[in-house]
Amino acid sequence: MRTIELKLQGYRLTTAEILYHLPDHPGLLQSFIWQDLDMAPRFPVLNKFLKFWDMSIEGRLHSVRIAARGIISDAELRMAGGEFVLN
């Protein structure tokens, strides 16, 4: 599907910070940033990626932090603090 169609269906730009244990040094953590369009709150695309990670990548997951922001949203309008008249 095209990106704009996904956005109109409610997909959001989702960023996940994935902390994982280094395979050679399990006491050390490494950070990985993942970003894609996904649908909150279930995040099916991110879950699919995390399942792939768990099955294919040696680094054991420590934690995942997620931030999601709708790209298409209502306009935010505010009244100005003053009025200016030009002659």
Rank of each mutant, 00 (worst) to 15 (best):
Met1Gln: 12
Arg2Asp: 15
Arg2Met: 04
Thr3Arg: 12
Thr3Met: 10
Thr3Gly: 04
Glu5Trp: 03
Leu6Ala: 13
Leu8Asn: 11
Gln9Asp: 15
Gly10Pro: 05
Tyr11Cys: 00
Arg12Lys: 12
Arg12Gln: 15
Arg12Thr: 11
Arg12Pro: 00
Leu13Phe: 06
Leu13Pro: 03
Thr14Met: 06
Thr15Cys: 01
Ala16Pro: 06
Ala16Phe: 02
Ala16Glu: 05
Ala16Cys: 12
Glu17Lys: 13
Glu17Ile: 11
Glu17Asn: 11
Glu17Arg: 14
Leu19Arg: 13
Tyr20Lys: 07
Tyr20Leu: 09
Tyr20Asn: 00
His21Phe: 06
Asp24Ser: 12
Asp24Ala: 00
Asp24Tyr: 00
Leu28Glu: 10
Leu29Met: 08
Gln30Ser: 12
Gln30His: 10
Gln30Lys: 13
Phe32Cys: 09
Phe32Val: 02
Ile33Ala: 07
Trp34Asp: 07
Trp34Gly: 09
Gln35Ala: 14
Asp36Gly: 09
Leu37Val: 00
Asp38Ser: 03
Asp38Arg: 10
Met39Glu: 08
Met39Asn: 02
Ala40His: 09
Ala40Ile: 02
Pro41Asn: 14
Pro41Val: 15
Pro41Gln: 14
Pro41Arg: 13
Pro41Cys: 12
Phe43Trp: 15
Val45Pro: 09
Val45Met: 09
Leu46Pro: 00
Asn47Met: 12
Lys48Gly: 06
Phe49Pro: 02
Phe49Glu: 04
Phe49Met: 13
Phe52Arg: 03
Trp53Arg: 07
Trp53Phe: 07
Trp53Met: 02
Asp54Gly: 04
Asp54Thr: 14
Asp54Tyr: 05
Met55Ala: 14
Met55Trp: 03
Ser56Arg: 12
Ile57Val: 15
Glu58Asn: 00
Gly59Val: 06
Gly59Tyr: 08
Gly59Asn: 01
Arg60Asn: 05
Ser63Pro: 01
Ser63Leu: 01
Arg65Trp: 03
Ile66Leu: 03
Ile66Lys: 03
Ile66Pro: 09
Ala68Thr: 14
Arg69Leu: 07
Arg69Val: 13
Gly70Gln: 13
Gly70Val: 04
Ile72Glu: 13
Ile72Pro: 05
Ser73Ile: 05
Asp74Ile: 01
Asp74Gly: 09
Asp74Glu: 15
Asp74Trp: 04
Ala75Phe: 09
Ala75Gln: 13
Ala75Asp: 15
Ala75Val: 10
Leu77Met: 14
Arg78Asn: 07
Arg78Leu: 11
Met79Val: 02
Ala80Trp: 09
Ala80Gln: 15
Gly81Ser: 12
Gly82Glu: 06
Gly82Cys: 04
Phe84Pro: 00
Leu86Asp: 04
Leu86Glu: 04
Asn87Asp: 09
Asn87Tyr: 04
